[in-house]
Design a protein around this nucleic acid. Structure first.
Lengths: 217, 217
DNA sequence: TGTATTCGATACATTGGTGTATCGCAATTT
DNA sequence: AAATTGCGATACACCAATGTATCGAATACA
């Protein structure tokens, strides 16, 4: 099972690229809806407006397609998070729980594809847990994201004259866990109740934890 | 898709019960290894030492078997956690980060079936996220567990003259998230390194968070 | 514009898993 | 012990999905 996407650096035609992208888009939807294992090649091809013929002349297998998709979306998410954090950096000289809360809320709520992404991430993790080869790739991605997040948080907090009382890397992991878990619980609760499983509640929790492990420098 | 297990309160023969249990045990292994979607009825039956004939005369479908399994294991885990927490209650008049850490470590490390359980739990959550009916059942289980955990923690902390500065229910959710995420990361890291993804590291993190949200009454 | 090549559609053979219907053995009942 | 019922094995028909081989059309190139 090949994990790294670009084995041969073939220069693909514009047409080929378009087709591949449409297939990846379709796969994103179909995987989210049915799961990787249950989704069929035919469903994916059909959703993209093709037949299986197109699929097999563009991808070796469903798995290869999945890794291409994961690669792409991981990068998108990574960039978005990094850009978002950078944007928030030069706010003002103070940082309050409310501010943190609203930053997090932005990220939790305003991503239209949170649902699909959350499902894909879970699928990815499950593959990783079952296949050591996939595991390596998965870990590498997590590593990169957590390091970036930790560094950004350090910068951000330093700019307002504070510092963390917990290793920023460890803190990032904690926040990541609460974030993922929170998204899932919000999704599960549905939009039908104002209980404890809302975007606001999750954001506040995260903010409080950040607060609890921050002190004046 | 029926979720609640006992529609008809049929008194099943001892033989039938034994067969069902063997099938459930087998399913636990096979599901953990291949995932619910990929696992076949034949694999499960074979692992249990039966043919598919036995399977179909005991279960309607793979899904029904899964819910029977989830029910059973959920209960086991719930009881184990409750018993464990109760046991730790009357320690001594003080509670330190180290103590909390070691309690958590017990739970994180000493469960031989952590791996399978973690995988099953993820599968369950994925089903829940995709099927509202399953979602209700899943939420109910989580609700119950978190409430119990919150209550126990309150008791425990009160006995040593402390209290939480965060709603114990919310705290339980946070700890649950970190716990699950931690198990997964430990599993992914494998037993081959002394990095930050070890049982000890996760236990310490949890302990620190508990500590951070605790104060003298 | 004509030619070459790439790529997607169609058709086909094959496989693996499903669910059911039937049979016979073993456990339970009297 | 004989009779009956419950339950697991066997066999079969069926279907859904796969992967490949071939063909024709669209695109790139001269």
């Amino acid at each position: 099972m090949s994990v790294d996407s670009g084995d041969a650096p073939v220069i693909e035609s514009a047409r080929r690229k378009r087709t591949r992208d449409r297939l990846i888009d379709a796969a994103y939807e179909v995987f989210a809806e049915y799961g990787i294992a249950t989704a069929t090649v035919e469903q994916i091809a059909e959703r993209a407006g093709f037949t299986r013929g197109a699929f097999y002349s563009n991808f070796e297998s469903k798995e290869e397609l999945f890794f291409a998709l994961a690669d792409r979306e991981n990068q998108v998410r990574f960039d978005r998070l990094e850009a978002g954090l950078t944007e928030y950096l030069p706010e003002n000289g103070r940082i309050s729980t409310d501010q943190i809360s609203s930053i997090v809320r932005d990220f939790l709520g305003l991503q239209p594809d949170n649902r699909s992404w959350c499902l894909m991430q879970s699928e990815f993790q499950m593959l990783a847990l079952r296949d050591p080869e996939v595991g390596k790739t998965y870990i590498a991605g997590e590593e990169r994201a957590m390091t970036m997040l930790g560094d950004r948080l350090d910068e951000l907090v330093a700019m307002v004259g504070l510092r963390f009382t917990m290793n920023s890397r460890e803190l990032s992991t904690v926040l990541g866990a609460i974030y993922s878990d929170g998204i899932a619980r919000v999704m599960l609760a549905g939009s039908t109740n104002p209980g404890p499983d809302t975007v606001d509640a999750v954001s506040d929790t995260i903010a409080r934890i950040v607060q609890a492990f921050t002190e004046p420098v």
